[in-house]
Write a protein that binds this DNA or RNA. Structure first.
Lengths: 131, 131
DNA sequence: CGCAAATATTGATGTTTATCGATATTTGCG
DNA sequence: CGCAAATATCGATAAACATCAATATTTGCG
């Protein structure tokens, strides 16, 4: 799919922060779905929730989360991940994009590097959905 | 180099119970993986855990869980699911098999019918892994 | 056994997606 | 601007998988 330049500015990249504040993509709701095991789950809720689980359904992505969580700084540079995961750079970039779009990661650009953090509320929402 | 994410080897059906006791597949460990966000997650752990999440990464399967949880009897007949989900019978059968093999569901055959239950420990393990 | 109902398997098909090499874009710096 | 490093996108490929129709298997019952 080819996105033209004008719409790209709006949909794809949102302005990066120069401060130290990580950002969260606008299209990812903070909490997604009602509890899976209590109450009624609509088809749309099921689709949303499934999409989130699917993001976690990839070993490399789980390892990314684990690697970030292991840092005292609570963040990790994308460049480090390439080496740590043993995957090609485009592959890592893809996984980061998927997780970012799912709202599981926030990003913070500092110069050439981009640092990723876990969005804890998003993980908590997932845990909550498993109630 | 291509990393081959090995799919679950579906050894065929294990013996079903004739008694009223639900069974759990032997190849599914009760609890799977160390916490995702604390401690070190090995590649194998990541693969195992990802496989579990992937099972949940399908709306129909989430709806199955939700439907079972909605029953006062805590169980549901496979035949009811076909109608409830609006999917073809083979498709439902497939989803049930996947969830059963993943240890998320237990089954109990009573005559021609097969009743499925949620395996709560398995869900709890998943929630625990999201810590 | 023979039938009917429930469930499972098979085979085919279309979609999604993980992966990589090649290449483009972004960013800081001199 | 021009260069180098980090990241993103593109295009291709292969694997995984959801889905269904057709068919097989299982089960209870008479």
């Amino acid at each position: 799919m080819r996105v033209n330049i004008k719409s790209m500015k709006l949909t794809d990249t949102n302005p990066t922060t120069v401060s130290g504040q990580p950002r969260v993509p606008t299209d990812a709701p903070a909490s997604c779905c009602p509890p899976l095991l209590a109450g009624y789950l609509s088809a749309e809720d099921a689709t949303q929730l499934a999409q989130l689980f699917r993001v976690l359904g990839e070993p490399a992505r789980l390892q990314i989360l684990n690697l970030i969580a292991a840092q005292a700084s609570e963040e990790v540079c994308a460049c480090e991940l390439v080496e740590a995961l043993g995957l090609a750079q485009p592959t890592v970039s893809h996984h980061l994009k998927v997780m970012y779009k799912a709202g599981l990661l926030s990003r913070d650009r500092r110069g050439t590097w981009i640092y990723y953090r876990i969005v804890p509320e998003r993980i908590a929402a997932l845990r909550k959905a498993l109630k």
